Amino acid sequence: MPRPRPAAAAAAPALAAVLLLGACQPAGRQASDGAAVAPGANDEAAAQSVVTTDWGPLGPADRDVIVQVRQAALWEIPVARQAQRGAARPDTRRALAEVARRHTGLDRLNRQVAARLNVPLPARPSAEQQSWMSEITGKSGNDYDKTAVARMRMAQGLLYAELGAVRASTRNTLVREFAQRAQPFVDQQMRQLETTGFVTGDTLPDPPAVTAPPPPAQPGRRAGPAPAATTVLSGGG
């Protein structure tokens, strides 16, 4: 495995420390302090329950999006801070510095909302996130830049979609306001990552499943422009 670049290596010990904190956890869910807790039937039932709050019912998807925003911050902030010093290209350093700055603000908002809704938050990256962090620190040069951007852009795309789904469906007004404020944060972070030139088709999440997709136009024939909806609805008159 290639060794990290000298600049990245200076920041690697701090990132490695984050990895070691959770590397030996047994399987199970994480408590609010990040410690592993063995799952049980009561835990699973509670996770699927809807609880009453001052802002309306709080369901599983509401709690999950709050936890996922926190989970993203736990690995993306240290990776972005490391990359702003150790990335090979200036464009990558600038983009990741902005991601770290914005993500820190989003994490602050997320913790405030979680506290008001009494949603426990993790304190360590997940096992999968730790593997991404380890993968990134093991790269050098342009491979370091490309891997950091690819992993982060993929994760941001998934989080953006989850925020949109919760924004559209939640019955909890505080969660709705949070998702409405958080989605532009994530959108801007995706834009920052895309300025690096390392975002390609293989760095994007899979497109959503469509049950009845519209058919493509006939090969070799360009579809004509559709008339205005108001014209169609009025019968063309």
Rank of each mutant, 00 (worst) to 15 (best):
D143L: 08
A47S: 13
P219I: 07
L204S: 08
I136R: 01
V175E: 03
S32R: 05
A27S: 11
R116Y: 02
G138R: 05
G86D: 06
A114H: 01
R5F: 11
G86R: 03
V99R: 01
D64V: 08
W75V: 02
G197S: 08
G138M: 03
D91P: 03
R94V: 12
A229W: 08
L121P: 00
N172W: 02
D64S: 12
K146F: 10
G164V: 09
C24N: 09
T196C: 05
V175L: 09
S140W: 10
D54G: 15
L74M: 11
M1Y: 10
L109N: 02
Q48N: 11
A27F: 09
L74G: 02
N142Y: 15
E177V: 10
R5I: 07
E177L: 15
R93A: 11
R101Q: 10
R221G: 04
Q192F: 15
A23G: 03
R108H: 11
T92N: 07
F198K: 00
A179H: 02
Y160G: 06
A8H: 05
T137W: 00
R151W: 05
P120Q: 03
A115E: 04
R85M: 12
R89Q: 15
T200M: 08
R167W: 11
Q82P: 02
A16R: 05
N118I: 06
P39E: 03
V79I: 15
G237F: 13
A209P: 01
D143Y: 10
N42S: 09
R89H: 15
P120L: 04
L163I: 12
L174M: 14
A95I: 10
G59Q: 06
A61E: 14
A12Y: 02
G22L: 02
N118Q: 14
A12Q: 08
R171W: 03
T203A: 13
A88N: 13
T52D: 10
P78I: 09
Q48K: 05
A228N: 08
V37Y: 01
L174T: 07
E194S: 15
G235I: 13
N110P: 06
G141Q: 04
P216K: 10
W132A: 05
R85N: 15
L15S: 00
V79F: 05
E162D: 14
R116Q: 09
A88K: 14
P57W: 09
A150W: 01
S169V: 12
Q71I: 06
P225K: 07
D143Q: 11
A182F: 07
K146E: 15
R89A: 15
D54K: 09
S140T: 15
M154L: 15
R93F: 09
L204W: 07
A209E: 11
Q130R: 12
I77L: 10
V186D: 00
R111E: 09
R151S: 13
E135A: 14
A114W: 01
N172D: 13
I136W: 00
